[in-house]
Each structure stands twice: as structure tokens, then as C-alpha cells.
Write a protein that binds this DNA or RNA. Structure first.
Lengths: 248, 248
DNA sequence: TTGATGGGTGTACGCCGTACACCTGTCGCT
DNA sequence: AGCGACAGGTGTACGGCGTACACCCATCAA
């Protein structure tokens, strides 16, 4: 046994084999939330799960909020990327059902995602690529914008709050965290990289401001709400008139 | 000054004038959440607001969960009752926009309502009367059932989770709290008063079980999801084909 | 007069997130 | 070979949380 080996052996005894990293922390957090519920996920409990003292976690995540951000990105990353195909309806449908499957796998995720104050990169990426499907399907940027709003939390699995007006659903007093999807492109290019990284989102945000209300800084939430509402009511009425019935 | 008056004066000095009751506690809680955000609403902070020691609150609410239940009922009670009129679309529209206005007044409410494990009476009442509008508008019980699901959280302001499959969004491990809207009528009449109190909901729940899957105990969530999804996709495609554009 | 009762009080416990100081093993540099 | 920086795990401590439990006291019916 060389001295190196001896040292390594001793090290293995004192530290916990794999030296813990952000990736492992996030994975353990997701697993813990899956099995014991999000309410039971505390820094202390998570540390215990990793055979480590609570404060050790803070070398890998800044605080619990950032942990939740990381968990969000982890599960959103599980959603299948958009497939290829000529039929845009089929493509969105598949994507959204994939998102749904992911959220069913992680029942805590919807609540956590909606509680984030700003959209995480993975969420932006997801929204952007989803918007892209509509655009490539021939919907105008204008229509795509409203369509994305209309999908709401149920169909995208989340996203609702990302587009909402600043204080409409958050923890109360938090001002616009300068990261809402609309404000990405609304308040001028704060980071020139954003528009290139999320081209469709940038386009959508721009589409809601080329009118007269350039100063608004956001889109008209009330309009979006009524748009979705009337779209559904139209659909309901049509189904009623044609005597629709579920084929159960 | 009579002895009674003296006693009362002394009492007023020691106790805080109005002797605190559930009503006052709930109103103060709502006000506090409105002004400082739901995260800052703690039993201790609320007690302080009422010039009382924290434990005093527990004489009026069992615990914090019940406090949140009470707050839920309070805000849901602010929603306008359904109006009268021959045009059902107009009536639902007005109602839902009223709900939206209430939720905008209390930005914390949507999150709180969705976090309740079981529906509170006021929520059931709201859902029931809303379902009633559709029924009187000529929609079948079957269609109304799916329509209610399709509305999702965005349009009803909440309700999503009430219909969801037990563990799909809650705090993790909690089993079906035997109070989901579907299970109200699904698992036989647990309380004979429920069906009379919420006739439309009872009817809707029944409509999802008269088929072959009597044993299911709940409706097919996946079906409801795809129903709403396809309804929206239909609408989107129609708008695209007719070259729809917002009149901004 | 008295005893029950409703409602406010005080103390204490066990959780939580996390600031801060500390220690130790590793590695690049001289 | 020696040394300083640094990455990463540790230990202690603080303030806040929800709430159990024992208490006190004013009111009022009997």
C-alpha cells in the first residue's frame, strides 16, 4: 500500500465517499420531496438524508429558495423536447402531455414552480420552445402570445404566474423581480443575450407593445383573461349546440 | 357611578374593549395578508395586530390551517352571487369576472385556496351555483361536468385541485381527505345533506359514474385534461384559420 | 355563595432557516 | 520540501415559527 492509498483510505473514512455537489443535493431534494412531500422537505432533513450536517448544504446552494429553483429546473428538464412533425397540433399535444406526466411524477412541482418569484432558465427554455411550436404551426406572433396566456396553468402545467401582473399572485409585497417573461423584452434588452436565447418569447413580448401602449411595461392581463374565457365559452356553446356527449 | 359601571370600566382597562371573536380574527387575518403578504402572516404577528397574546387566537380557531380555511371562505364569500338573465354566457361571464376581481383584491388568496386539502363550504357553494348556471343554460350534466374541469384554475380562479386526483398536487402524502368535489357524491351519500345543499355538484359527480367504471371512485382526470386541451387547440386552430388578430 | 365556563395569559418545546467562526485536507507555487 | 490559498464539511447560536399545557379571572346560573 503506497502512502497515497493510505491517505485516500483515511480520507474516505472521514469524508463521505463522493464529496457532495450541487447535482447530488438537487437530486436528493427531488427524491425527498417525491417520497415525503414538499412540506417535509427541510434543509435539516435533506442534510440528514445526505449524511451531512445542515450547514454543509449551503456550500452548494445559497439558500432554500435557490434549492427550490434548482429543483424546478431539474423537473422541468425532464419534459421531453418538442418532437418533429408536420402536424403542429400533434407536436404541442405531445409536449404538453409530457409536461403533465412529469408533474404527475412530482406532485409537489406545480406548487413550487408557481411559487418561484422569477422564471428559471429551464422554464424559459420550455416556454420558448413551446411558443416556437405554435409559430412554426402558422400562428401569428400576436395570436401565439394570447394562446400562451390562454393555456394557463392547467395546460402548461404552470407558467401562469410568469405572465401575470407583478403582485397578482406572489407572496404579497414582492415587486416585479425584473424577470417576468413579458418584461424580458418589454423593458428594453436588459441582457442582450436573452433575446437570442429565447427568440420566441422575445417576439411575443414585443408583439404586445407595438401598439399604442408602449409605456405599459407589460401586457393587458385583463384582456388575456377575457380572451381565454371567451375562447372556452365559445367552445362550450359549440359543444352544447352539437349535442356533444362524452363517449364513456 | 354604579358598581356595574365601575366593574365594566375596570374590565375595559384589562381586556381590549370588544372581546375578540372568530369573525374579528378572520377579518384581521385577511387584512394583514392583504397588506403585508401571506408569508408575513403568522399567528404571532396576527395576535400582535389584535393586541392580544398569540395563544388567545386558539380560542377562536383550532390552528393555522383552520385560520386559512376561514380566510378562504371569507374571500370566496365576496364573489357576487350569480345574476339573473336569459343569457347564460353573460351570467357565467359576469360571475367569473367577479371572482377574478376578488382574487385581484386578495393576491394571496389563489395560492391559499389551492393549498386547502378539502373544499370549504363557501367554495362548494360557489362551484355548485356556477355549475347551476351551465345547467340552466342548457348544457347536459355530462357536458357541464367536463366544462367545469376545463375551466381550470385560471377561469374559476381556483378549483383545479378540488377535482384533481388525490395526491396530484397536495402536500405530498395526504390521502384523499374524503372531501373532494367528486367524492362528495361518488362514495355514496356520506352526509345526506350534501346532495341537497349542492345539488348540481352531486349531479355532476354522479354523471361521471353511471358508465361502466362505477368502482373508480373518481372521474378520469386524464380524460378531463385532454378534453380541455383539445378544446383549446380547436379554438386556436379556428382563430388561426380565420386570420384572427387582436384589435389592439 | 359557589362552581362551572369562556376567554385571555405565560411558559416552554421542538422545529425551522441560516449567520458566523472554525477546522481540515488538497493543490499550485516557489 | 514547504507554504499559503481555498474548497468543503462542522458546531454553535440566534431569532422566528406553531402550538401544548397549565394558569388565572370575570361572568353568570343555580
Amino acid at each position: 500500500m503506497t502512502r497515497q492509498e493510505a491517505t485516500q483510505r483515511a480520507t474516505q473514512r472521514s469524508t463521505q465517499r463522493t464529496p457532495l455537489n450541487r447535482e447530488r443535493v438537487l437530486r436528493a431534494a427531488v427524491a425527498l420531496a417525491d417520497t415525503t412531500g414538499i412540506d417535509a422537505l427541510s434543509m435539516r432533513r435533506l442534510a440528514q438524508e445526505l449524511d451531512v450536517v445542515p450547514m454543509a448544504l449551503y456550500k452548494h446552494v445559497a439558500n432554500k429558495e435557490e434549492l427550490l429553483d434548482g429543483m424546478t429546473d431539474a423537473v422541468v428538464g425532464e419534459i421531453d423536447p418538442p418532437g418533429a412533425g408536420p402536424d403542429w397540433r400533434h407536436v404541442v399535444r405531445a409536449r404538453i402531455l409530457s409536461a403533465r406526466r412529469v408533474l404527475l411524477r412530482h406532485p409537489w412541482a406545480a406548487r413550487v414552480i408557481e411559487s418561484r418569484t422569477g422564471p428559471t432558465p429551464a422554464v424559459l427554455e420550455y416556454l420558448d420552445s413551446t411558443a416556437g411550436i405554435f409559430r412554426e404551426g402558422g400562428l401569428s406572433a400576436d395570436l401565439t402570445h394570447h394562446v400562451m396566456h390562454a393555456m394557463g396553468s392547467r395546460l402548461l402545467g404552470f407558467s401562469q404566474e410568469l405572465f401575470a401582473t407583478p403582485g397578482s399572485g406572489g407572496s404579497g409585497e414582492s415587486a416585479d423581480p425584473a424577470g417576468s417573461a413579458d418584461s424580458v423584452a418589454a423593458s428594453g434588452p436588459p441582457d442582450p443575450g436573452l433575446a437570442e436565447r429565447y427568440p420566441y418569447i422575445a417576439e411575443l413580448a414585443a408583439a404586445s407593445h407595438d401598439g399604442d401602449s408602449v409605456v405599459g411595461g407589460g401586457c393587458d392581463d385583463q384582456f388575456e383573461f377575457e380572451f381565454a374565457l371567451d375562447l372556452l365559452l365559445d367552445g362550450f356553446e359549440r359543444l352544447r349546440d352539437q349535442g356533444w356527449t362524452s363517449a364513456r
